[in-house]
């Protein structure tokens, strides 16, 4: 009884219901949604936003907001790409991931320093560093679409399995990068739930002063958090270009808004302290289905943004409504108790 009440208060079930309804609608109208290749295509386009969303969710839980991760991912992958091309490296792709993650770490550390140590407002800081990093990429490195080194190209061709749609004769490949997403999810789950560091992120989002008094190293945790987001962004960058098999510096820019929207849609509280990985992934899935599958029911692609916008507005509206009505209910129950 009590646990049922707790479940209906969460937003994951609503997002899941929306996904199911939308899927069924598309399935009924087109008959193509539950085909193997469509599902694999969806999983494929989910990988990059989902990787981003993990870090983004953690930042929002800590009470901050980060809009710089696409810029970090782009600059990190681009520099790595150029570096490897210039040195004619043809070894393992692990090195590419390592370099890009390292660059991401450095860029994230700048965010962490400004936010954790100087206590500057997160939105403004990351807006600034975002502008800084994209500017460096296009300015100092005069970035433009470029080839990828053989190791990354080869990594991009590694596929887990191929799904074929018998009626349309279309095939889709499940990229191996999905394994990275799974690994990151497991790591993040463990980190958030079973380490003091992870609990510290939630604690800071709940009450920063209380966290400090309790003995959490607030600066250190924030530093770690933004570094972690940087590392994740670096990895995401390489995953993205290996799947596209060329390095387009602007392919990820502008994703921050939809990723944040997906995270909030998934029930992460904008003011911090609450958020789950399950909700986040559901939120990303809903946004991905919207932008990928509407074409299946005959809605031209250039209308998809209208739907994304509508989903953000409706989704956040429902969440806002929920928080207000729980607050009211709580006030009433307190009154009853008094």
């Amino acid at each position: 009884m009590i646990s049922l009440r707790r479940i209906t208060k969460r937003s994951e079930p609503y997002v899941l219901a929306a996904i199911i309804l939308l899927s069924l609608l598309i399935q009924v109208r087109s008959g193509q949604f539950f085909s193997g290749n469509n599902l694999v295509d969806l999983a494929r386009s989910l990988i990059v936003p989902a990787l981003f969303s993990v870090g983004c969710m953690m930042v929002i839980v800590s009470g901050g907001i980060d809009v710089s991760f696409p810029a970090i991912a782009s600059l990190a992958m681009y520099v790595t790409d150029k570096l490897l091309l210039a040195s004619n490296y043809s070894g393992n792709v692990i090195l590419a991931y390592a370099i890009s993650a390292g660059l991401g770490l450095l860029m994230g550390a700048l965010n962490g320093f400004l936010i954790g140590f100087l206590r500057l407002p997160t939105l403004v800081v990351t807006l600034g560093t975002s502008s800084l990093y994209t500017g460096l990429m296009f300015g100092a490195f005069s970035a433009s679409a470029s080839d990828v080194p053989p190791s990354i190209a080869k990594h991009g061709k590694e596929i887990l399995f191929t799904a074929t749609n018998p009626t349309m004769g279309l095939t889709s490949n499940m990229p191996s990068q999905i394994l990275i997403l799974i690994a990151v999810l497991i790591l993040a789950f463990f980190l958030l739930r079973y380490t003091m560091l992870g609990r510290g992120i939630y604690a800071i989002g709940g009450d920063e002063t209380a966290a400090e008094r309790a003995g959490f190293n607030v600066r250190g945790i924030k530093m770690f958090l933004y570094c972690f987001v940087g590392v994740l962004a670096g990895i995401t960058g390489i995953a993205r270009i290996s799947m596209m098999s060329y390095a387009d510096p602007s392919t990820m820019l502008g994703m921050e808004m939809t990723v944040i929207a997906a995270v909030v849609l998934g029930g992460t509280r904008v003011t911090g302290g609450m958020g789950t990985l399950t909700g986040t992934i559901l939120g990303v899935a809903l946004m991905t289905i919207l932008s990928n599958s509407l074409i299946l029911i005959g809605i031209p692609t250039y209308w998809t943004r209208v739907f994304t916008g509508a989903v953000i507005i409706i989704g956040t509206g429902v969440t806002a409504h929920q928080t207000i009505s729980t607050r009211r209910r709580r006030a009433q129950s307190q009154k009853a108790a008094a």
Partner: peptide
């Protein structure tokens, strides 16, 4: 953020 998407859309 939503209206930006909506209006642009």
């Amino acid at each position: 953020l939503g209206t930006q998407q909506l209006f642009t859309g």
